[in-house]
Amino acid sequence: MMLYLRLFYEFFKAGLFAIGGGMATIPFLYDMADATGWFTYNDLANMIAVGESTPGPVGVNMATYVGYVTGQSAAGIPGAILGAVIATLGLVTPSIIIILIIAAFLKSFRDNRYVDSAFYGLRPASTGLIVAAGLSVAVSNLFFTDTLAQGLSLAVLNWKGWILAVILWVLTNKVKKTKGLHPIIFILASAVVGVVFSM
C-alpha cells in the first residue's frame, strides 16, 4: 500500500513541476531512480525508448511503464497493472486541477505578466534539467562505469556505442533524407545494430 501511495506522490510531483512536454518528465524520473531505487538509469533509458516508440504522449507512456515495472516487482502482474494506473493518474492529476482553475479565467491568465515572466525563467531551467538528466544517460551508456572504478584506461570507452552515437547524430541532424524521419525508425535501427554488433 505504501508503495502505491509513494508512486502516486512521486508522479504527482512530476506532473506538477515538469514544464514543457514529454522530455521535461525525464529529470523527475532520474530523481525518482536516485531517491527510491525502483529502477536503474539503464532501465530508465529503456523506458524512454519504449515511451518514444509507442502511441500516446511520451510523458504518459513513461509514467505508465515506470508504474508497471515498480508494481510488478512488488506484487506480480496485478501489482503491475495497479502500479501503471496509479502512476498515470498521479501524473495527470495536477494537470486536471490546474487546467480546470485556469479555464475559469482563461483570458486573464494568458495576458498576465507574472505568468509570462515566470516562464522566461522556467524555460532555460527546464532545458538545463533535461541536459543534466541526458548527461547521466550518456555517461552510463557511453562509458563502462564499472570498469572506470578500476582506473582510467581505454577499456572504459564503449567504442561501439560512440560510433553508433556519431552515426545517429549525423543522420538526425545533417543528412537531408533522414533527418525528418520519425524517432521510432532510429530506435528500431539501433536495436538491430545492437543485436548484430553485440552491444
Binding site: 525525464i26 533509458a45 550518456a138 547524430w169 530506435i187 545492437g194 543485436v195 553485440s198
Partner: peptide, 27 residues
C-alpha cells in the same frame, strides 16, 4: 539485451536533439 544496448545509445542522441531545439527557444 544487446538490442536495448543499441536503443539506449539512440535515446542519448534523441535527448541531445530535443535539448538543442529547446535551447534555441529558451536561451
Amino acid at each position: 539485451q544487446h538490442a536495448f544496448g543499441g536503443i539506449r545509445i539512440c535515446v542519448c542522441i534523441l535527448i541531445c536533439n530535443a535539448v538543442v531545439k529547446l535551447y534555441k527557444k529558451a536561451v
